[in-house]
Every structure is written in C-alpha cells, then in structure tokens.
C-alpha cells in the first residue's frame, strides 16, 4: 500500500532538481531570518503572529502539570497547612517590622533628595505572572510566562523573583511572553558591588548557577561573598536590586583582568511565580506622593496586580522595588570610572 506514491509518476531528475532549488532557497532564507532575528527587530510582527499560533499547544502542555499541582495542593493534610500558616505568619510579622523602618527611610531619602535637588526615584508597579511548565530550547536560557501584551507585558521589562533579578522580556505574544534569564550567554547585566559601589557587567555563561564579570581589573576591590546589585546603568533594570553573590575571584598577575564568577541570587530554575517591573516612565520629574508604602498596601497589591492593566496606574497600586537605600550612587567616585563607558549594556547583545 505504501509502495506507490504520486512521486513515482514524475521523472526522478526533475523532482530532485526542484527540491534542490527549494532547498537552496529555504537555506538562504533561514540564514537571513536568523541574522535579522538576532540583529534587528524587523521580524517582531512575524514572530508575534507565529507565537499566537503555537500558544494553544504550549497551554495544552502546561495544563496537566498545573492540574497535578492543584491536586497536590488540595490533598495536603491539615497539619502541614497549619505549620505553613504559622511560618508565614511569623515571616509576615518580621517583614512588616522591616517595612515600617523602610517607610521611614524612604521618606528620609525623599527629603534628602529634595534637598540635593536630584530627581526623585520613581516607584515601580509590578505585574505577577506564572511560568508555563514547558521545556523550551535547552541551549538558550528562556522561560515562558502566561501573560502577554494583553496583560501589560512589554519587551524589555525586567523580571524578578523574591530573591533577586531573573532576566528580561525578549518577546511577547498576546497571551504569552518569552523572557531571557540573566544566565543566557547573550545576556549582560550592569551591576555594582553593594559594599563599595564598584561597577561592572555580569555576563551569562550558559550555566544556570553562574555569571561572570570579565572586565574588572586585577586589583579591583571585590572579594568572595560580595553582593552584586543592579546598577541601573543602561536604563533597563531598576537600580539596587540584588542580582548575584560573588563566588570566586581569581587574580592572575599576568592578566589585566580578574576572573570573577558569581551565583545569581534569584532561583532561576525553581521559581514558579515572577514579578515584572513596569517602569512608570523614563522621565522622572514628577514626584511620587505615595512614597510610604505600608505592608497592607503590598498585600492588597499582590492581589490586584494580577489583573491590573498598565495604562492607568493608580497611585495606590504601586510597590516600591528599591528596598535598599544605599549611600553610594554618585557617579563621581574615581575608582569606578573605568566601566562607565558602556552605555549600551543592559541590552541583549
């Protein structure tokens, strides 16, 4: 039955030639597509359309996993829930205490900034999104979110979890969005050392637990255990978010640069829910009246941020993401000048 096919009716040479022609055509088209896709944004509409096409399949794969998780959740026994509740309660008490002092510090920071006549920091709004349980290309570090342009997600928005920076949105469809993790080899993250403000760029390595900082000099003041926070240069990531902890510093005297590796603080391979930071605007002239967010605000925000559209951003629905009030953000520290000439960092290369 299988032996005969319409192909047999044609002479073999014409068929082989025609497939050779189409092969040459599609191979050149593929190369062109890969080049354009990587270097330019011309293909965004094409990609968005195709993303919508494959979204039902991704959703279908995610569904049983989600169902399984729901089943596990509904079958936990009461004791576990009580224990968890108790821990969370204690955690909340501690957090509330911290938030109270934070509100105080923020007000103080605003006053000092006003005195210095520098632009006030703008608190950001966040969107909460779930990850879809699908395996994407195993050789790039991408994750798929269950919110797209309909949910207010835009290309370039930074992605956080509770512990730190995760990555940024690289592609959006109407209902889903792809985010690149900071460990992707094509990702560069502008950071500074929390201890002394030394600036550098953390590049992804392709391993989920490793970043590297290749452009700090051998004598740079950086050591194991240092916390790296985002420096805000490049304008993509908000300033002062925890990003990584330095795990190893190798100083080879024959080399100009130290070999520094760091481990991301965010749980890149385990987080299920992520926060997307919606920056209000790049122009930060208007002062934000709601600088003192209280703990109750945040709790209600978590609930409302899920379906809050981004266009109108009422002041009550804001969460300030800058939780550190670090003393050093002035760019005139002479030690830091060497890495200042990198305005395009924070982008994907």
């Amino acid at each position: 039955m299988l032996g005969s096919s319409p192909g047999n009716k044609q002479p073999i040479f014409s068929q082989a030639t025609s497939s050779l022609i189409s092969l040459v055509v599609v191979v050149s088209l593929s190369v062109l597509l890969m080049y354009l896709d990587r270097r330019h944004a011309y293909l965004d509409t094409l990609r968005t359309g195709m993303t919508t096409l494959v979204y039902p399949i991704q959703r279908a794969v995610d569904l049983p996993v989600r169902g399984g998780r729901w089943l596990v959740r509904s079958l936990v026994n009461q004791q576990t829930l009580l224990d968890e509740n108790l821990t969370l309660r204690q955690q909340r008490l501690e957090d509330q205490h911290k938030l109270q002092s934070l509100a105080e510090l923020q007000a103080e920071n605003e006053r000092l900034r006003a005195l210095l006549e520098s632009a006030a920091r703008v608190p950001e709004q966040v969107i909460v999104a779930d990850l879809l349980s699908v395996d994407l290309d195993p050789f790039s570090h991408l994750i798929l979110l269950d919110k797209g342009t309909r949910g207010g997600v835009r290309v370039g928005q930074p992605l956080l979890d509770a512990e730190g920076v995760m990555g940024q949105i690289v592609e959006t469809g109407p209902f889903s969005a792809y985010a690149m993790l900071i460990t992707d080899p094509n990702h560069a993250l502008p950071v500074r050392v929390h201890r002394n403000g030394l600036r550098g760029i953390a590049f992804g390595t392709g391993f989920t637990d490793q970043l590297e900082l290749p452009d700090l000099p051998v004598n740079a003041d950086i050591r194991e255990g240092d916390l790296l926070v985002t420096s805000g240069l490049g304008g993509r990531y908000p300033e002062g978010l925890p990003a990584a902890i330095v795990t190893e510093v190798v100083r080879d005297p024959t080399d100009d640069f130290a070999r520094i590796t760091a481990r991301p603080t965010a749980m890149l391979d385990r987080s299920r829910e992520v926060l997307l930071v919606v920056s209000r605007s790049r122009v930060t002239t208007e002062a934000e009246p709601d600088g003192t967010t209280t703990a109750t605000d945040i709790v209600s925000d978590e609930a409302t941020a899920k379906d809050a559209p981004t266009e109108e951003m009422p002041a009550a629905e804001t969460i300030t993401s800058q939780d550190d009030s670090s003393p050093d953000q002035s760019p005139d520290n002479p030690d830091n000048e060497q890495t200042d000439d990198t305005p395009e960092d924070g982008d994907t290369r």
Binding site: L29, S30, V31, L32, L33, M34, D37, R38, L43, L46, R47, M50, T51, L53, V54, I57, Q58, D135, L136, D137, S140, L142, L144, E171, Y178
Partner: peptide, 9 residues
C-alpha cells in the same frame, strides 16, 4: 517559535 530558538534554526 514553539521553543524560542533563533528563527530559522
């Protein structure tokens, strides 16, 4: 598109 690979790979 499904796996987020470079388009054309």
């Amino acid at each position: 598109v499904l796996t987020g690979s470079p388009l054309g790979l």
